[in-house]
Design a protein around this nucleic acid. Structure first.
Lengths: 222, 222
DNA sequence: AATTTGGTGTAATGCGGATTACATTGCAAG
DNA sequence: CTTGCAATGTAATCCGCATTACACCAAATT
């Protein structure tokens, strides 16, 4: 119902190519930017569609035409942001770096993103909305945690094949374990008290500890 | 402004003693019970004061007289529930059980409470509200996580004094580490997908792993 | 220049709910 | 019995928004 984005004529699309943005695309980007601001600042319920328009320019009518409804623009914003955030991780995860160094880098990347105020805020929102809008939570999981977990599992498999760590039949679970170790100490405090903002040093400590415990544990197994 | 609860006359209060509940106290309990239901079911914003009254009986007017406003009754409900939940833990934490067994029991108690649908739901709510109502989050932390953490730290200190584990200058942090290990794997999934309900077996596995990694790690330290 | 396509601004329309006002009722003490 | 005080039920009062309707513009294609 809301595929306004794809209503370019074939001719038009071919003429301009992918580089120049149509008015619609510019508008869309501005809406998404403003939506992120407003949602993260005020929360889903409190955020007002008019406020988004106020900041993005344009009109309510166009906003609705492009995204359908409030949940629609939130979802679009979520997808956009998740892709931005996981982009860097993808790169990191494709290398063949030795385990210890690799885990450290992945951990830093991951934790670094995680503790950014915007990420914390977004996570807060998703958790709060998960019951009422299960599909938002699904999308978040698919584009966020699951993506990272799969990538890490593949990396661990690669390292196991290289003989650096013992083989396992469930690297996904081991990966989750590692990610949880990195994440929990940083996130649990920050989610509940806006005063506490984990700093770079906190991140380093958390990652370092996770890496050593994880490898120590792996070595102890089988 | 809302101390209607204490407006018994001296005579009346002396006559009845502390066992029989005044009408006001009965009302209050019913309100709190209904409020918990409605808030957990519908979330803070979606919950309606009228719905609470509908289930509890009584009247809107009385509800407002006793709790002031919507945040007020939520806070009262939160305090009540947190005290119920941590009561059992207090007992567990005062024993002098050997570490491994003690950690296992504490872990089970803690995790068991944690994965109850009501607890998960409440946590979801608190996280979602933390930005808009920081005092709710504060109260939650004080009556929940902090309480448990302090108790566990004291227990660990006790065990260290008994020579079972090495001394440390920060048992609070070590305690947090243990609790995070127990909590994360169980909570992270369940918070985002209402389909996933951790079962007793999940709890056991999570606790067992946390205990062994924790003790293994402690032993390894100097 | 004309036409099409989508954009703009503004002003309804509706709904849902927090919060309060009011008139009434029951209980208990003098 | 009656006087007073708190509880009740109901029905306003107010607000704030999501969402839609309407009437008018801008640009690009023909």
């Amino acid at each position: 119902m809301s595929d306004a984005k794809n209503q370019n004529t074939t001719v038009e699309a071919a003429t301009r190519g992918a580089d120049a943005q149509s008015r619609a695309e510019i508008r869309r980007a501005a809406f998404l930017e403003a939506a992120q601001e407003v949602f993260l600042e005020q929360g889903f319920e409190a955020a007002s569609m008019s406020e988004i328009v106020r900041r993005a320019g344009g009109s309510l009518t166009t906003l609705y035409a492009q995204f359908g409804d409030k949940e629609g623009i939130f979802l679009a914003m979520l997808e956009t942001r998740m892709k931005e955030v996981t982009a860097a991780l993808d790169v990191e995860l494709q290398t063949h770096t030795p385990v210890e160094e690799g885990l450290r880098r992945i951990g830093e990347q991951f934790a670094g993103k995680l503790v950014q105020p915007n990420s914390l805020e977004l996570y807060r929102l998703i958790v709060g909305l998960a019951k009422k809008f299960p599909d938002l939570a699904q999308t978040f999981m698919k584009l966020g945690p699951n993506k990272v977990r799969e990538g890490l599992a593949a990396y661990l498999q690669d390292r196991a094949d290289a003989g650096e760590i013992p083989q396992s039949d469930d690297f996904e679970q081991l990966g989750s374990l590692f990610l949880d170790m990195v994440r929990s100490p940083l996130q649990s405090r920050a989610l509940l008290s806006q005063a506490v903002r984990p700093c770079a040093e906190d991140v380093r400590v958390s990652v370092e500890r996770a890496v050593s415990i994880f490898l120590y544990g792996l070595a102890g197994k089988r």
